[in-house]
Amino acid sequence: MDRLILQKAASYCAYQERTQEEVRQRLRKWNVWGEEADELIAELISMNYLSEERFAKTYAGGKFRIKNWGRMKIKQELQRRGISTYSIQQGMNEIGDQAYVENLRILLQKKKDLLSKTETDPFKLKQKLARFALGKGYESELVWKELESL
């Protein structure tokens, strides 16, 4: 195993949380393939530079707090990145139920304030708000429940 490549890969992982697939792609760019790539990834995991669970927690928490994404969108994105069901569940645990509903409420209120300047029909306004929240990845039952109380 090439120590220089291991060092480069370690600093690549230290910079920000990565998935195994992202590291594998980076190794391919450095012309490291197959068994050697697997060995390097195993070494990075044992050195704690690479952790799927830690990635899922960081990703879920960040997308929720910064981009105001809902659980469905976050879960879908983690699945797309090949994260295990267990790690996805650990990531989802980073989002508290109370904060989740509160976030949706704030999001809908801001959007409503923005849209009510142009949209006068209350039915259309509700539809637009629902579409917006669903697009952010929030569950439809929760969205409609919050829209009723808005």
Score class of each variant (00 low, 15 high):
residue 145 K to A: 15
residue 124 K to L: 14
residue 103 N to G: 10
residue 50 L to D: 05
residue 77 E to F: 07
residue 126 K to R: 14
residue 112 K to F: 08
residue 62 G to D: 07
residue 140 S to W: 06
residue 126 K to C: 10
residue 100 Y to A: 02
residue 58 T to L: 00
residue 50 L to M: 06
residue 55 F to E: 05
residue 70 G to A: 05
residue 118 T to L: 06
residue 104 L to C: 02
residue 120 T to Y: 05
residue 116 S to D: 11
residue 100 Y to N: 02
residue 103 N to V: 05
residue 90 Q to F: 09
residue 76 Q to P: 01
residue 44 L to P: 10
residue 102 E to P: 03
residue 147 L to Y: 00
residue 108 L to Q: 02
residue 128 K to E: 15
residue 131 R to N: 09
residue 45 I to P: 04
residue 148 E to F: 13
residue 133 A to I: 04
residue 65 R to C: 07
residue 95 I to F: 06
residue 64 F to P: 09
residue 120 T to P: 01
residue 115 L to E: 01
residue 103 N to Q: 08
residue 121 D to S: 05
residue 74 I to W: 00
residue 54 R to W: 09
residue 95 I to G: 00
residue 46 S to R: 15
residue 69 W to D: 02
residue 94 E to A: 09
residue 71 R to K: 15
residue 95 I to W: 02
residue 47 M to T: 13
residue 81 R to H: 14
residue 55 F to Y: 15
residue 113 D to G: 12
residue 44 L to H: 01
residue 62 G to H: 10
residue 50 L to A: 06
residue 84 S to P: 08
residue 131 R to K: 09
residue 47 M to R: 15
residue 135 G to P: 08
residue 111 K to Q: 14
residue 72 M to Q: 14
residue 95 I to L: 01
residue 147 L to F: 07
residue 71 R to Q: 06
residue 53 E to C: 11
residue 132 F to W: 02
residue 58 T to W: 07
residue 121 D to H: 04
residue 86 Y to Q: 05
residue 56 A to L: 11
residue 60 A to L: 03
residue 135 G to A: 08
residue 107 L to H: 00
residue 148 E to C: 06
residue 70 G to C: 04
residue 48 N to T: 14
residue 80 R to W: 12
residue 136 K to M: 10
residue 143 V to R: 00
residue 118 T to V: 13
residue 100 Y to L: 06
residue 79 Q to T: 11
residue 136 K to L: 05
residue 51 S to Q: 05
residue 44 L to N: 03
residue 90 Q to R: 15
residue 58 T to M: 00
residue 122 P to D: 01
residue 144 W to D: 07
residue 130 A to P: 04
residue 142 L to G: 05
residue 104 L to G: 00
residue 129 L to I: 06
residue 79 Q to G: 07
residue 108 L to W: 03
residue 95 I to M: 03
residue 94 E to S: 14
residue 110 K to C: 10
residue 44 L to G: 05
residue 83 I to H: 03
residue 105 R to D: 06
residue 147 L to T: 03
residue 56 A to F: 13
residue 124 K to S: 14
residue 68 N to W: 15
residue 73 K to N: 09
residue 123 F to H: 07
residue 138 Y to G: 01
residue 103 N to T: 13
residue 137 G to E: 00
residue 145 K to N: 13
residue 116 S to W: 03
residue 91 G to N: 03
residue 75 K to H: 13
residue 133 A to N: 00
residue 97 D to G: 10
residue 114 L to V: 07
residue 131 R to F: 15
residue 63 K to H: 14
residue 68 N to G: 10
residue 96 G to Q: 06
residue 81 R to T: 11
residue 134 L to S: 05
residue 45 I to R: 12
residue 57 K to Q: 13
residue 115 L to T: 07
residue 67 K to V: 13
residue 56 A to E: 07
residue 111 K to V: 12
residue 72 M to W: 04
residue 133 A to M: 03
residue 149 S to Y: 06
residue 68 N to M: 08
residue 65 R to E: 10
residue 99 A to N: 11
